[in-house]
Each structure stands twice: as C-alpha cells, then as structure tokens.
C-alpha cells in the first residue's frame, strides 16, 4: 500500500521534463515544420549563394557529376567594382528607391479622396485598387504598349500633333513626322523613369488600400475635438490624421522599399534591362549574368546577389528593429 503510494506522490511532486516545460516546448513544436522549410529554401541557399560568389562557375558539372567551379576568392567582387553595368544597376536601384516613395503620399491622397460616403464608392475604390490585383507582368505589357512610338497611346498622340498622313511609294498609308516620336523605353535617359512610372501605378494602389484601412481606425472623437479647436485642412491632416496613420505609413514604406528593390518583372517584360543595359537593376542584372541565355556566370551572379542582399539587409534590419521598439513600447 505504502509502497504503491510512494511513486504516486513523487510523480505529482516531480512531473516529467516534458510536462514541466510544456509551455516552452509547444511553440517550438509548432514552429518546427516552418523552420525546416525556411532553412531548406531560404537560409541554406543564402549561404550557398554567398559561398558560390567566391567561385567562378558556368553552372556545368562534368560527366561524372563533379562541379566545374574554380575558387577565385574575392575576385568577383573586385570585378564588380570595375563593372560599369553594375554601377548603372546600382544607380537605377537608387532611382527606384527614391521615386517609388512617391507611392506613399500619392496613395494617402487617393485614400483620403476615396474615404467618403458617396453612392457607388465601393465601385470606385475597387477600380482604384484594380492595378494591384493584376499581375505585374500584365502591367508591364500594358505600359510597354502605352509607350510604343508606333501604335501606343504616346505614339498616337504624337502622330496627331506632329505628323501628317501621307501615302508612300506603294500608295500605302504612312506618316511623316516633323520630329520623330519619343521612344521612351529605348532611350537610355528615360527608359528607367518610364518603367518606374509603370511600377508606381500598382504600388500607389497598394499604399492606398493600406491607408484606407488605416483611415477606418482614425478616432472620430479626436477629429471632432480638433475641429472644435479650429483645425482644418492641411493642419488637420498633418497634426491629427497622419499621426494616427503611423502604423499604416510604416507598412506602406516597408512594402514600397521592398517593392522597389525587388523590381524585376517589369524590367524583364518592358526592356530586358535594355537599351544596352541602361535600365538594369541589381535583381535583373543578377538574373542576366547568372541565369539568362548569355549569362552562365553563376559565381559572378552570386556576388551581385550578395550585394543586393546586403542592401536589403540594411533596410530589413532597420524595419525589424523599429517593429521591435514599437512592440516594446506597446507592452
């Protein structure tokens, strides 16, 4: 009897290790599948890519499966330093970062404009949101046609102003222009801005929707109080509404920065980095160097990827730190 009672009491007094640490273990058990996949598909490839950037490799294995890569140390990075295409890409990345930020205030103004109760407002809102729903590839294609100097909107308008319709030697209709139509996507000066403008279209819609949801949470009593104190117009917006939209602004800036740095699809669709590399950004240059038909320099491509990763890391760490600070403040 007593003999049986002893283990019973020890069990209740000293529960097993798993039971004691149940609360600490449970989250990890739930996290394990995600962590495994995150490691396989994100973390390990990052290190593989870093490692590969120290090799020169054309992506081929020999017949018996040996990699044909040769160790070159930091030569790829030294090459990058002297590569004008790399600097062009970096400069374009900067242009993307700066100009893409326009999406945040523009999104805010459209959101303010759409934040009214008018019959059919849902319809207008969805129309404004529409460009974000369609694929980036489609947006690129549409803008590519839009800019086309022969049959696009730009070309057609230009023809209406500067060109006259004549017949050519065979009697077919053709246009002779007093000055040639602007070829935005083939001009090394303007092509990048043309693509950024196309990229802004869906990005503004994205920021707009973030602000629209944010505006729902703006405290009505504070607005009323401000109004009683005589605030209106810009002052009301700047001192009362915008501060309350801070979480939305934060997210809008984060997605815009990341969107700007990831700008790949539109460049691939609209110019393939051309004319002669002048619209490349790091992400597209990396693709071009490593994976495209004329690339096959995986080591060099990895070094471009590493630089891009470094730049992204700066922003991401800042954002994470900011979020961490906010959470600390919230507690």
């Amino acid at each position: 009897m007593t003999h049986a009672a002893v283990p019973d009491t020890t069990a209740s007094a000293r529960p097993s290790w798993v039971k004691r640490n149940k609360l600490a273990i449970a989250p990890w058990i739930f996290l394990i599948p995600a962590l495994i996949f995150f490691a396989i598909y994100v973390v390990i490839p990052i290190f593989q890519s870093l490692w590969l950037s120290l090799y020169e490799w054309n992506g081929l294995y020999s017949a018996d499966g040996e990699s044909t890569a040769t160790w070159v140390g930091f030569q790829n990075y030294a090459k990058l330093w002297d590569d004008p295409n790399f600097w062009t890409s970096l400069r374009n990345n900067l242009a993307w970062l700066i100009l893409f930020m326009l999406a945040v205030p523009l999104g805010l103004f459209i959101a303010l404009f759409l934040n009214q109760t008018v019959p059919g407002m849902r319809f207008y809102k969805s129309m404004f949101f529409f460009p974000f729903v369609i694929s980036q590839v489609v947006v690129g294609l549409i803008f590519g046609w839009f800019y086309n100097p022969d049959f696009g909107v730009v070309g057609t308008l230009w023809k209406a102003v500067f060109c006259e319709e004549t017949t050519n030697i065979l009697g077919n209709v053709t246009f002779t222009c007093s000055r040639p139509a602007p070829d935005i996507l083939s001009s090394p000066e303007w092509a990048t801005y043309g693509i950024i403008a196309a990229g802004l279209w869906p990005q503004i819609a994205y920021c707009m929707i973030l602000y629209l949801t944010g505006l729902n949470n703006v405290a009505a009593d504070q607005i009323e109080a401000a109004r009683l104190d005589g605030a209106k117009g810009w002052k009301m917006l700047w001192y009362v509404v915008v501060p309350q939209l801070k979480p939305a602004t934060f997210i809008a800036i984060v997605v815009t920065v990341i969107g700007a740095l990831r700008s790949f699809d539109m460049i691939a669709i609209m110019t393939q980095g051309g004319p002669f590399g002048s619209t490349n950004v790091l992400s597209h240059y990396m693709y071009e160097v490593a994976i495209s038909e004329y690339g096959e320099r995986y080591g060099y491509g990895s070094s471009v990827a590493t630089v891009l990763f470094g730049i992204m890391l700066i922003f991401i760490s800042y954002f994470l730190w900011q979020m961490y600070q906010d959470e600390k403040g919230g507690r």
């Binding site: 800019y147 086309n148 100097p149 022969d150 050519n168 030697i169 065979l170 077919n172 053709t174 040639p180 139509a181 070829d183 996507l185 083939s186 051309g274 004319p275």
Partner: peptide
C-alpha cells in the same frame, strides 16, 4: 527605321510590309 530599339525582328516586318 526610327525606333528600332523598341521593336523585335517580327515588329520590324511591319514597315517592310507596308512599303516604308
């Protein structure tokens, strides 16, 4: 032809076919 940098080789057939 003008604007050749924005045309593929197939696009460039259009002015050829039109007699321009």
């Amino acid at each position: 032809v003008d604007n050749h940098a924005s045309m593929s080789w197939q696009d460039a057939i259009a002015p050829f076919a039109n007699g321009d």
